[in-house]
């Protein structure tokens, strides 16, 4: 797996575990399926952990864990399955301020959208990362300077920029 952030390839501090026993056996930050979260928190209060949720998850199921989890990895079964983008928006709306990871065979061309929906990093299978190295992700991020949709990304939208320009001009 390769991790890509806004600034390029990064090391993954979290280790994935498929069973609760294995996750409890380490002191490193763990990434575990949503279903293990309550038991993990109970037995490891205060430990840094992440949850893995499918893009199809209902926000009602994810929300209770957003205060304790440091990382949420939204799993994309395929790059063409956009449910994860909406789930990210809902997670951010719940006030989640930790690391929001898009995990799966995404393509570099989706990086801008992923960031605009609130993801902070992308975790790629090796096969994808080989064909599309970090450099492609960084340049894809620069392809479009603006977006029309208010409420997405950190920059104001084109509509808001126009308004600001006109207000500025009229003062």
């Amino acid at each position: 797996m390769t991790l890509i952030t806004k600034t390029g390839a990064a090391d993954d501090r979290f280790t994935r575990f498929d069973t609760l026993e294995d996750a409890l056996a380490t002191d490193e930050p763990v990434l575990i399926p949503l279903a293990f979260a309550p038991a993990y928190v109970e037995q490891r209060p205060g430990a840094e952990f992440g949850i893995s949720v499918p893009g199809s998850a209902a926000i009602e199921d994810v929300a209770p864990h957003l205060e304790t989890a440091a990382l949420v990895a939204v799993e994309f079964p395929s790059f063409a399955d956009g449910r994860g983008f909406s789930l990210a928006r809902k997670i951010v709306r719940e006030g989640f301020a930790g690391t929001l990871r898009a995990s799966g065979p995404l393509i570099a061309d989706q990086f801008l959208d992923a960031l605009a929906c609130g993801f902070t990093e992308v975790e790629l299978p090796e096969t994808m990362a080989n064909r599309q190295p970090a450099q492609q992700w960084l340049s894809a991020k620069e392809t479009m300077s603006d977006h029309y949709q208010s409420g997405y990304g950190t920059e104001p939208s084109i509509l808001q920029k126009r308004l600001a320009a006109r207000k500025g001009a009229s003062v």
Partner: peptide, 29 residues
């Protein structure tokens, strides 16, 4: 804004075609 948006979209597509031809993108992608 509209002008730049459309121009940048063209450049983006040009890049996508190049990445298809050099194999970065598969046909399915």
């Amino acid at each position: 804004f509209d002008e730049r948006f459309v121009r940048e979209r063209v450049a983006q597509f040009r890049g996508q075609v190049e990445r298809r031809v050099d194999g970065s993108l598969s046909e399915d992608e």
